[in-house]
Design a protein around this nucleic acid. Structure first.
Lengths: 277, 277
DNA sequence: TATACTAATGACCAAATAGTCATTTGTCAA
DNA sequence: TTGACAAATGACTATTTGGTCATTAGTATA
């Protein structure tokens, strides 16, 4: 449905400018050039719009961050690549990023906060995964602190991307932060965040990957995808989620088939989680 | 006026729970146990309340941070002391901190954003000042990056204080972050934030210290302070702001007289700025 | 007790809010 | 041209919002 897309895009602008609470449905419909009734044909309530938006935009955002991690992994200058990817994502999705940063502290709505937190946990885990890839066991007890340092760097330097419209030297920034990250990784000895504390802060908020949820999302993709191979892979995967049939290697292959399709990136991610690969 | 205090305190609770926009005057008056009319005897509008609150609570907050810096300066474990002070402040003013973090990204109101940003700039300068004290010129071109790293650490670890109610080992946390900070200071060579970029991000938002503003705030203190020495110092300082009379050393002495009075801490800070000491 | 004054109340207002629904418009195939 | 169906409209409602003001309660002085 094209209308939904339009509404979400214009709403994102308004939300990133004013926040959720101070944006009215009226304003949204005005900016879209549609009537109030038309809005309620696409979304049952204003809340439903907000939740849809969080899923829609933060999924894109997280998938890109994930991609940065994956591409950076095992490269010579892993952290440089990582930070470059991160901040490119910040530039590309600056409106989403702003909304993300705005509303993840503002607990006007408990459920909403949980949802945003869940995405942040996702990001946290991506970073931890990257560190494990590079340092293996050698980092062990300072790992989580390093994760929080990296997140701190991201949040602090995000200011430059989100609140000012500047031409910035991304390479220089990435090099600068990569150096700092490596230095900490190599020299830091005193840790604060224990395994347990990390568990408490993260797993606590983690979103469940339920069978129903996965099936629902797969169905959504199936209806919007055209390409034959992708479509068939999705259908097979849907069958697999309902009743296990194929072996691990086949499933991975099927996920690989859909992974690059823009509409399926999140589904691919979720399936990996669901099958615990 | 006692009513004002009561309203601001209860409003702080509500704002830190729900944010500005989703808190109504009705809710505030209910929690205070007063009528709607009584509210408007203390504040002309809801906006005036918000602005008063930002000044009231963020001034306390910044003064405490400042104090942490001052007390830490030149000590053996400067950074440990600094971080300990910072996070104690976070615990003590957790509601203010939450409001601060909530609303400094949410530009529902431009003026409000400017005000909150101005306080953040204040904090940034405090940290820069501390670094200058410790490293002098040796740090020069990586100084501002270090400031942003420290701010990043603060923001990232603030999560533990503001969104969870945990018993935390502050000493361990302070040691851990101090070590990281020192490591970066000592080993980092690649900088990103130039003098100019820092100027652009900070001085841009800096709040003017106008004569009128200082006089107004001094008058406010004069009316609320009882102690003779403090009161007389305030009056002399007010005269001094209006027409220069005394020498620098005398003025500093007078500021010293008022500095420890809780109601005057912010005034002391502002006077130092105003006279450019 | 009578007077004067301030502090506090809550019914009231206009404006804005999220959400509804009878009606109109647009677009097909027959 | 007609009829059937979906898409879109905007006047409407019920509720909530920030803010006002005639009235009342409380208190101190004469």
């Amino acid at each position: 449905m094209m209308k939904k897309q339009l509404i979400m895009e214009k709403a994102l602008e308004l939300f990133s400018e004013q926040g959720f609470e101070s944006t009215s449905v009226q304003q949204i419909t005005e900016r879209c050039g549609i009537s109030k009734g038309a809005f309620y044909l696409s979304f049952k309530t204003k809340e439903e719009l907000i939740f849809s938006m969080i899923d829609h935009f933060l999924q894109q955002f997280i998938v890109d961050i994930d991609q940065s991690v994956k591409e950076a992994l095992h490269k010579e200058d892993m952290f440089v690549e990582f930070y470059k990817g991160i901040f490119k994502t910040f530039q590309k999705h600056s409106k989403s990023a702003r909304m993300f940063l705005n509303e993840n502290t503002n607990p006007a709505n408990k459920e909403l906060l949980e949802k945003v937190k869940a995405y942040e946990v996702d990001m946290t885990k991506s970073i931890a995964f990257m560190l494990e890839g590079l340092y293996g066991e050698t980092l062990q007890h300072t790992k989580y602190d390093l994760v929080y340092c990296i997140k701190g760097f991201m949040k602090s330097y995000a200011e430059f991307f989100i609140f000012a419209d500047l031409r910035l030297d991304l390479d220089q920034l990435a090099k600068s932060l990569a150096e700092k990250t490596e230095i900490i990784a190599r020299h830091s000895t005193i840790s604060f965040i224990t395994e347990e504390l990390n568990q408490y802060m993260n797993y606590h908020h983690e979103e469940m990957v339920s069978q129903d949820k996965v099936l629902e999302l797969l169905e959504l993709s199936i209806q919007s995808v055209e390409e034959a191979i992708v479509l068939e892979s999705l259908q097979l995967l849907k069958g697999q989620v309902a009743h296990q049939t194929y072996s691990k290697v086949i499933i991975i292959g099927l996920i690989e088939n859909i992974r690059l399709q823009p509409e399926c990136k999140w589904q691919a991610r979720l399936l990996m989680k669901y099958f615990q690969f």
